[in-house]
Simulated scan of single mutants.
Amino acid sequence: MLPLQGLKIVELGHYIAAPFATRLLADLGAEVIKVEPPEGDPVRGWGSLHQGHPVWFSVHGRNKLSVTLDLKSAEGRDKVLKLAGRADSLIENYRPGYMERVGLGPATLHAANPNLIIARVSGYGQDGPYRDKPAFGAIGEAMGGLRHLTANPGQTALPPPRCGVSISDDLAGMYAAMAVVSACWGVKNGNHQGRIIDLDLVSSVFSLMEGMLPEYGLFGWVRQPQGAAIKTAAPTNTYLCADGKWLCIAGNSDLIFKRLMAVIGQPQMATDPRFVTNATRCDNVEALDAAIAAWTATKTAKEAEEALDGAEVPCSRLYDMKDCVEDPHFQARDLVMEVEDPLLGKVLHPAAPFKFDGVSSRDMVRWTGAAAGAHNDHVFGELLGMKP
Rank of each mutant, 00 (worst) to 15 (best):
T277Q: 10
M321C: 10
E305P: 01
D289R: 00
I292N: 01
T296V: 00
T300S: 12
D320W: 14
S316K: 09
I292H: 03
Y319H: 15
R274F: 06
C315M: 02
A307M: 11
N284P: 11
L308M: 05
K299Y: 00
C324E: 10
A307C: 11
Y319R: 12
C282E: 03
C282H: 11
C315G: 02
A307S: 14
F275S: 05
A291N: 00
V285M: 09
T298D: 03
A279M: 13
R317E: 12
L308I: 04
V285T: 00
E312C: 08
L318S: 05
E326A: 15
T280R: 08
D323F: 06
P273W: 06
V313W: 05
M321P: 03
E303Q: 15
L288Q: 09
D289C: 10
C324Y: 14
V276D: 10
V285S: 09
V325N: 02
V276T: 15
A311W: 09
V285N: 04
P273A: 11
D309P: 02
D323P: 04
T280E: 12
T296K: 03
A304K: 06
A311Q: 06
L308Y: 08
M321L: 14
P314L: 07
S316Q: 12
E312N: 14
V325I: 13
V285Q: 05
L288H: 01
A291W: 00
G310P: 09
T296E: 03
C324D: 06
D309V: 10
I292M: 01
R281Y: 11
C282N: 15
N278F: 00
F275V: 14
N284V: 01
R274G: 09
D289S: 04
K322D: 13
T277A: 11
F275R: 04
L318P: 05
A291T: 04
C282V: 12
C282G: 07
D320L: 11
D289H: 13
A279V: 15
A290T: 13
R274A: 08
L308G: 07
V325M: 13
L318G: 02
A297S: 02
D283C: 00
G310Y: 10
A301I: 03
T280W: 04
E326T: 09
C282Q: 12
T298C: 07
A287F: 03
V285F: 06
W295E: 01
D323R: 06
T298Q: 14
A294Y: 04
A294V: 07
Y319E: 08
C282T: 14
N278I: 02
G310Q: 11
C282K: 09
E303D: 12
K302P: 05
K302F: 14
D309Y: 13
P314Y: 05
W295H: 03
K302G: 13
L318F: 07
E303L: 08
E326V: 05
P314V: 03
I292A: 01
G310K: 11
K299L: 03
C315N: 14
A290W: 01
F275M: 03
E326P: 02
A293K: 07
D289E: 11
V276L: 15
A294P: 01
M321Y: 14
K299S: 02
L308H: 09
A294F: 04
A294I: 07
A279Q: 07
N278C: 07
E306T: 15
R274M: 01
D283P: 00
D323K: 08
D323S: 08
A291E: 05
I292P: 00
A304F: 12
P273M: 12
V325Q: 02
A287R: 08
